[in-house]
Amino acid sequence: MTAFNDFLRAVRAPLGAITLTLLLGFLLVMMITDQPVLAYRDLLLANFDSWSNFGLFLNRAMPLALIAIGITFAFRAGVFNVGGEGQLFAGAITTTMLGVALAGLPPVLLFPIVIIGGIAAGAFLGWIPGVLKVKLGVDEVVVTLMLNTIVLLFTSYLVNQVIRDTAAYGAVSQLVPKEIWLPSLPGVPKASSGILAAVVLAVVSWVVLFRTKWGAELRAAGTNLRYAEAIGIAAGRRVIGAMLVAGGCAGLAGALYVLGIGHRFEQNFSPDYGLVALTCALLARIHPIGALFTALFYALMLNGAAYMQISTDVPRSLVDLLTGLLVLLMTARVVISRRKA
């Protein structure tokens, strides 16, 4: 019962802001086009026109949700992790490399190896800024940002020089063996079942953060590090642990993308998933279940905007405007509630 109330509280804030954003956005659309209703219908509902559209929508949401859930851990531990993109790429490239290199292994063995490999690569990339912050006091924002660039360029080298599929167009790798591809979601042919992992992880993350001693200690370290130290919490270890989880989640997102959606590493597979996921996590008030919902919403808007642009003369960049509005409204709400207190 209290769990249900907590859940309600977690989704109430983003839902309110989203509704208001859409209303204001509608006024804008009315000014741009003669067919505002059609534009808005496409933006919001075209995702549900066919199972195929719906599947693409879920595929878009999967990496966003996983990275955002991971970022929740980092933020709760007081680490401003902007390295989601790099961690995602590390996971994706590792899974691909292992899948291509070990293609001869039986799938029962290969599948867990590539998944664990992807998670480990992401986690390793999270571990670096975590350790540097705890041991040497290096600012994590700088480290994660720099690592993003390093990883993106390194994967570019790998995909172009090492595992490039010379028969295909563009900077893409060879395919991973078909036997380890993720099955599609039952009933939704185009949707990878990776989204299920995001749903499960959202709930598990909530339990870990709010219903375990480890989670309580992590949040204590994140809200007041000196307090956490004084009551005997190994605060540094909690911070590093949170970064391992954050990186691991992003790495898993990369692995599941390769196995379920791309089936190979594509240099351009991410429309800045890492940064968009950061916004998702912040809008969800750093709550893992909230993050799942904000990720779904963002995916809806990103894909819907494409449909809208095709059918009407409303440009796709309306979405950027709407997300700006959304961020504005969410922050405005914080000020109002503060003033009441």
């Binding site: 309580a216 949040r219 204590a220 809200t223 007041n224 307090y227 956490a228 130290e229 004084a230 009551i231």
Partner: peptide
């Protein structure tokens, strides 16, 4: 405020912190 408590956490979590 510096070392005794975490302001944003609840009374319950502060008093239980070392006593789970």
């Amino acid at each position: 405020l510096d070392r005794g408590i975490s302001k944003t956490m609840s009374v319950a979590e502060n008093v239980a912190a070392t006593n789970y």
